[in-house]
Structures are given as C-alpha cells and as structure tokens.
C-alpha cells in the first residue's frame, strides 16, 4: 500500500489524435490552480500518428514523472482498445473511468471493482464537439471518485485558460455532462 503523503497517480491510455496530451495538460493546470504539486509525462514522436499514447499525471510530491506498474490510483481509458496498455500501471485499489458503454468493457475490467464506464463519446457528440470525450471523462472522474484530488471549479478554470476559445463553451458543456450524466448502470 502507498504510504501517507504519496502522490495521486493517474495513467491515461488513448491514441494519437484523441486529445490525450490535452487532457493531461488540463489535469496539470487544474492541479496548479489548487496549488498542488504536479508532474506529467507522455510519449510523443511516432506515437502521434495514430499510435498508442500513454500519459502519466502525478498530483502531489514526487520527483520522477513516471511511476512503477501496479501503482496508479486512476486509469482513464480514452480508447477502449488501449485499456490493456494502461491496465498494468493500475494499483490494487485503483479505479477506472472508461470511454464506452458497459457492454464494451474488456473482460479484465469487467471483473474489477471500481470501474466506471462513461458514454463520453455520445456526450461529446451531443454538444457538437466530437473531440471532447476526454473532458467528459474528467467530469465523470470529478463527480464519481471519492479520492480524486481535483475540484470541478479548478478543472473548469483550466479548461477556460487552456482551451482554444472557439471550443470553450462546448468543452465546458461536455465536462458538465460528464459530471451529471454518468453512464453508470
């Protein structure tokens, strides 16, 4: 088990073009708004051409940007097929927010506790912002998870300060949909 004072570790699994890096940036900025220490890293380069992308976000005191396998508090799955890429990093008590209906959960997630499927794609489409699924997932995480260290007001502030202006309104709407209309069933 993690000792007291250990950081809250998040791993985000997705594919190039899904806004994985943008999501880690929002989480990082939201942490800064709250005055929390934060550290993120990601894989660039060839991975940007539709390849797998893993992002690591550590909120709290840590020096290294990566953490060992089996220690993440939260896995955010942006692309269902990438759940397996991120899963090895998840700690024993870690939870999962998953972009997709509960029927599309892979077996190894179906047998876990603390897995929250969220129909983030539809939420994003419903406000005409098909690339906003990442923010619906954050919304869900912020409302569903007890230990999630980021509060909705700071996340909204990060969305406002980091997003391109033309997507600001719909980005905030997707976030709110994620908060309220979870796909829990």
């Amino acid at each position: 088990m993690k000792p007291a004072g250990a950081p809250y570790d998040i791993v985000i699994a997705g594919r190039g073009g899904q806004g994985v890096l943008y999501l880690s940036r929002i989480l990082g900025e939201a942490a800064l708004v709250q005055g929390l220490a934060v550290r993120t890293t990601e894989t660039h380069g060839m991975a940007m051409r539709g390849g797998s992308v893993l992002c690591f976000v550590r909120i709290g005191s840590a020096l290294g940007p990566l953490f060992p396998r089996g220690s993440a508090d939260l896995l955010m799955v942006l692309h269902p097929a990438e759940a397996a890429t991120g899963h090895p990093y998840l700690g024993p008590g870690g939870v999962v927010v998953f972009n997709g209906a509960s029927g599309s959960l892979p077996e190894f997630l179906r047998v876990r506790e603390g897995v929250f499927p969220v129909d983030a794609e539809s939420m994003a489409r419903s406000v005409g912002n098909p690339r906003g699924a990442n923010l619906a997932l954050v919304g869900a995480a912020a409302s569903l998870l007890r230990d999630f260290p980021l509060a909705p007001p700071s996340i909204k502030e990060a969305i406002v300060s980091q997003g391109p202006e033309r997507f600001r309104t719909t980005n905030l709407e997707v976030f709110r949909l994620g908060q309220s209309g979870t796909g829990k069933d």
């Binding site: 894989t43 060839m46 991975a47 051409r49 539709g50 893993l54 990093y89």
Partner: peptide
C-alpha cells in the same frame, strides 16, 4: 527489461497497443 511506454512500434506485452501509421 520491461518497457513502460509505447514508442514507435513497441507494445507492452498482452496489450492492444496500436502502431503508428501514415495519417
């Protein structure tokens, strides 16, 4: 020798990692 990230063409064992392609 475990590799934790997914750079060009590499896939952690047992995962559904996707390799990069031309857009």
């Amino acid at each position: 020798e475990v590799r934790t990230s997914t750079g060009a063409g590499e896939t952690p064992s047992g995962s559904g990692g996707s390799a990069p392609v031309l857009c």
